[in-house]
Each structure stands twice: as structure tokens, then as C-alpha cells.
């Protein structure tokens, strides 16, 4: 094992020598690259991200390029490996990125709503009308009927669609794998969960409250809210130190100064469901790290 590591390190060292100064961090980047996690409707995300790229390019005076990510992990890995300079991540992936960056990755800003974020548990309307499901004061009330229910999380890497709902279910004494009739992860993130529950493909699902509140009235009518989780911290803009302190500061200011009174800025804030972007420290996400690490890991086997 030791030999393997030495050899691979040597190989990487050689590679670096070959690349020369190219791979060294450049304080004055020619171009900034960013990505966002594909947590819902990809077409809309790409649209919003392209708009943001234009606004940031103008404010920073540096070209800003949006790179799509096919899943959450790609956004984290891209940031760490110098394929991306800053990314929009969920709570869990924010912690993942901070950990994987070994001190060189930090939170840049977050939304006002992320300081008190929540998930909804939503039920299929037909199942609610048919008496299979009802309003829940406590998730533990699901216990007796769980075996008859099909349940869906969102993306495996989502905080509001998987990590926290699972955490609250486990706290209520429900093991999603064992206790529901079937359990799955909806493709397409929160929009997938809403669609699955609204159409009846799943009886019950858990998702991001901000996405749900903006969804179509028809979908919401077909998938009423049964339970709202307690608050937790979620999404953040996360940047790598290779940007350099000056540029990082400018980038943070650009986010914090997005002004709801201006049309261009307002469009970005609306697309991100944010009143404003606010500054935040990495420590705020420690609670998410605790949940991530303490969650029973049976679902990974």
C-alpha cells in the first residue's frame, strides 16, 4: 500500500513538473468558472445560471462561465480539482466540499432563507382523500401505516430532499428502507419528487420547501403538505481560495449587493428564491456535518 502511494505520488509529481507553472494558482484569473447542483428542473437552472454569469461578469469585470454538472458530486469534485472556482451547493455538499478542500474551501455567502430552511413531507391527494394518509403533527404518527406506503426521497446527495428528512424519520423511529412498502430516490431532484407524489407514482415524499412554494398550483393541489420539519441550515455559495483574497472579496460583495430594487438583480434573487444573499461562516454548517456523520449508514449498503 505504501509503495503504491509513493509511486502514484511520484507520478503526480512528474506530471506537475511537466505542466510547469500552468497549474499554479493564478491570483488574477482570466475567467471564472462556476456551477450549481442540479437540484431541480435542469433547463431552468441552466437559464438562471447563464443570467447570473452575465450579471457577475459585468459586476466583476472578469468573464464568468457557467459549467453544467450532471450530479451534486460533480460540482464538489470540480471545485476541489480546479475545474471550477465557485459553486452553489446544498448543505451536505457544502460540508463535503469544505472537508475535501482541506482548509482551502470556504463558504462565501448564503441566502436569508437558508438560515431557517425546512423540508415538507407531501402526500398524494388521492391517498389523503382515501384515508391512507393524513396531516401529521409528528412523523412518528406514520409508523402504523408506513408498511402500506410508497415513499420517495429526492437526490441521494440532497440535504432537504434526503439527509434531513431521513434524519427526522430516523429520529421518529422509522427506518425508511425497512418500514415503508417501497422507498426510492426520485430522478430530477425536488421536481422529480413533486411529480412522483402529485401523479401518484409515490404516496409520500420529502422535498425542499422553497421549491414547493414556487411550484405550480396544480401540482401543489395534487400533493398537499402533511408535515413541515424543524429548521436547519442549507444552501451556500462556496469558493476555493485559489481565487485569491481580493477577487474572493469582490465576488462576495457582488452577491451581497444584489439589490431587489434593481430589475437585473431582482431576477437573479427571484430565480434563487432569495430575499437577499447574506454573509456566513463555515461553522454555521457544523450541525449539518454532525447529522451527515451520525446518520445510521445502513442505506449505503
Amino acid at each position: 500500500m505504501k509503495l503504491f502511494h509513493t509511486v502514484s505520488l511520484a507520478a503526480i509529481g512528474l506530471l506537475f513538473a511537466a505542466c510547469g507553472a500552468d497549474s499554479a494558482a493564478e491570483p488574477t484569473a482570466k475567467e471564472l468558472r462556476f456551477s450549481v447542483i442540479p437540484d431541480f428542473n435542469k433547463a431552468k437552472l441552466a437559464d438562471d445560471a447563464t443570467k447570473l454569469a452575465a450579471v457577475l461578469s459585468r459586476k466583476l469585470g472578469v468573464p464568468v462561465r457557467y459549467e453544467p454538472s450532471n450530479d451534486y458530486t460533480m460540482a464538489v469534485n470540480g471545485l476541489i480539482a480546479n475545474k471550477l472556482d465557485f459553486v452553489w451547493l446544498g448543505g451536505k455538499t457544502t460540508v463535503d466540499a469544505i472537508d475535501a478542500g482541506k482548509g482551502s474551501v470556504h463558504v462565501l455567502a448564503t441566502r436569508d432563507i437558508d438560515l431557517a430552511f425546512k423540508s415538507y413531507f407531501i402526500g398524494n391527494k388521492a391517498a389523503v382523500d382515501g384515508g391512507k394518509l393524513k396531516q401529521l403533527a409528528d412523523l412518528a404518527e406514520l409508523q402504523p401505516s408506513a408498511k402500506a406506503l410508497t415513499f420517495t426521497f429526492g437526490d441521494k446527495n440532497s440535504t432537504s430532499g434526503h439527509l434531513m428528512p431521513r434524519h427526522f424519520l430516523v429520529a421518529a423511529g422509522i427506518d425508511p428502507e425497512r418500514d415503508f412498502k417501497t422507498m426510492g430516490y426520485a430522478e430530477g431532484g425536488h421536481s422529480g419528487t413533486l411529480k412522483a407524489v402529485a401523479s401518484g407514482s409515490a404516496d409520500l415524499g420529502a422535498l425542499n420547501f422553497a421549491y414547493y412554494d414556487k411550484a405550480s398550483a396544480e401540482d401543489r393541489a395534487n400533493a398537499p403538505i402533511l408535515y413541515t420539519t424543524p429548521d436547519y441550515v442549507d444552501y451556500a455559495w462556496v469558493a476555493h481560495d485559489r481565487l485569491g483574497a481580493a477577487l474572493k472579496g469582490k465576488l462576495r460583495d457582488a452577491f451581497l449587493q444584489l439589490d431587489p430594487a434593481q430589475a437585473d438583480d431582482k431576477a437573479i434573487l427571484t430565480a434563487w428564491s432569495a430575499g437577499r444573499f447574506v454573509p456566513a461562516e463555515d461553522e454555521l454548517w457544523n450541525s449539518i456535518r454532525e447529522v451527515r456523520d451520525s446518520l445510521p449508514k445502513g442505506f449505503l449498503k
Binding site: S8, I12, L15, F16, C19, D22, S23, N77, I80, A81, N82, K83, A100
Partner: peptide, 14 residues
């Protein structure tokens, strides 16, 4: 073009 800037030691785990 992108690959020239990639920091390979971070790519190693995956």
C-alpha cells in the same frame, strides 16, 4: 484546455 489546470492529487480519490 480544462485538463491542463486540473489539480490531479484531488482527482485521485475517485
Amino acid at each position: 484546455d480544462d485538463l491542463q489546470r486540473v489539480e490531479w492529487q484531488y482527482v485521485r480519490p475517485y
